[in-house]
């Protein structure tokens, strides 16, 4: 549905060259929620702005439903943009218009008949839960309510795609969650493909199906959110995951374990979905005569899937440990050895 092929965007400030996006290739499928995460200045905004050509890529191609945007003339590009809604960190509403008029903006732009506008705007007010606010001005709304108005406005032209540039970054955690729930609802109910960028892993974990991690203008890692969580490849990705659950054992504890008579081995076991709740530790004891002790446990929800992490210390003969872990891997649990301190 959305394809970026080797997209680069370079800015020149005086004679300084800023490569905001370097060689980004990614594909967003119809109906999914695709997240892009990265630190400030990583190039996320530039990347998402390339999708509707607010920023023209210096190199590479952007295509929507197979149509290369670079080949469109002004009117065609505007028509395409109407199929792509966009919301922003700062909401970007017209301060001189009421909530109703703000939401109706995309319809006014193409001279939609008045009756149709009223019908559509009321429907959207309902969807975002702001029925009572239709004749109020943005200045009288809270941040969360302003973002709801912005979402309703973005949906007024019945887009297939919704781009969200840090849509929740100006909001408190509770409001963030309510906006994310709304985005999820829109995605499911209206089957709108969503691309969102954020610097918060929490946002990715809560609603995204797939994620791309950006660093210094490059997409360094991408894939299903579950895979990225259970098996991150790049240090920056691990850092982001650590920001919501820290699965590293404290150094003093590792030292203490090491000084034990039989330090055994330390493993991290990841459970995904149906495997959560299986009695694996008991099986290590009964089938392999191993002695597992639990050092850390965590269970969390990644969008629709439950994801558990367990760190255990196992003592027993080397062969038994090997066999035991092989058995767990056969059960499709992800096993990782954590080296002792030192």
């Amino acid at each position: 549905m959305i394809r970026l092929d080797n997209v680069s965007k370079t800015f020149y400030q005086g004679n300084k060259k800023i490569e905001a996006v370097k060689n980004a290739t990614l594909q967003v499928n119809k109906g999914e929620i695709f997240g892009v995460i990265g630190f400030s200045g990583a190039g996320k905004s530039t990347l998402i702005r390339c999708i509707n050509f607010l920023e023209r890529p210096t190199e590479g191609t952007v295509s929507i439903n197979g149509v290369n945007l670079a080949g469109l003339n002004g009117a065609q590009l505007r028509a395409t943009r109407r199929r792509i809604g966009m919301i922003f960190q700062n909401f970007n509403l017209l301060s001189s218009d009421t909530v109703f008029d703000n939401i109706a903006t995309p319809l006014y732009l193409v001279n939609t008949p008045k009756k149709e506008i009223v019908r559509k705007v009321r429907e959207l007010l309902n969807l975002v839960g702001l029925q009572e606010k239709e004749s109020v001005y943005p200045a009288q709304l809270s941040g969360g309510q302003k973002q709801r108005v912005a979402i309703a406005r973005a949906l007024a032209s019945d887009p297939e795609i919704l781009l969200c540039d840090e849509a929740t970054s100006a909001l408190d955690p509770q409001t963030t969650d309510s906006i994310l729930d709304l985005l999820l609802e829109i995605n499911k109910k209206l089957n709108i493909t969503i691309v969102l960028i954020t610097h918060e892993m929490h946002v990715i974990k809560k609603i995204c199906d797939r994620v791309a991690v950006m660093e210094n203008g490059e997409v360094v890692e991408q894939g299903k959110v579950l895979d990225i969580f259970s098996n991150p490849q790049k240090p920056i990705t691990r850092n982001f995951i650590k920001s919501i659950f820290d699965v590293n054992l404290p150094e003093p504890l590792l030292k203490k374990l090491e000084s034990q008579q039989d330090p055994g081995k330390i493993f991290r076991i990841s459970f995904i979905g149906d495997h959560v709740g299986e009695p694996v530790l008991a099986e290590l004891v009964t089938k392999f005569s191993l002695h597992p002790s639990i050092l850390y446990g965590n269970i969390t929800q990644i969008k629709d899937t439950t994801f558990g992490t367990l760190i255990i210390q196992v003592t027993g003969s080397d062969e038994a440990i090997k066999a035991g872990m092989a058995y767990l891997e056969e059960r499709e649990l992800r096993i990782e050895v954590i080296p002792h301190a030192g």
Partner: peptide
């Protein structure tokens, strides 16, 4: 706001 309008076509 100008940008939002550009994005709306």
């Amino acid at each position: 706001v100008i940008e939002a309008f550009q994005a709306m076509g």
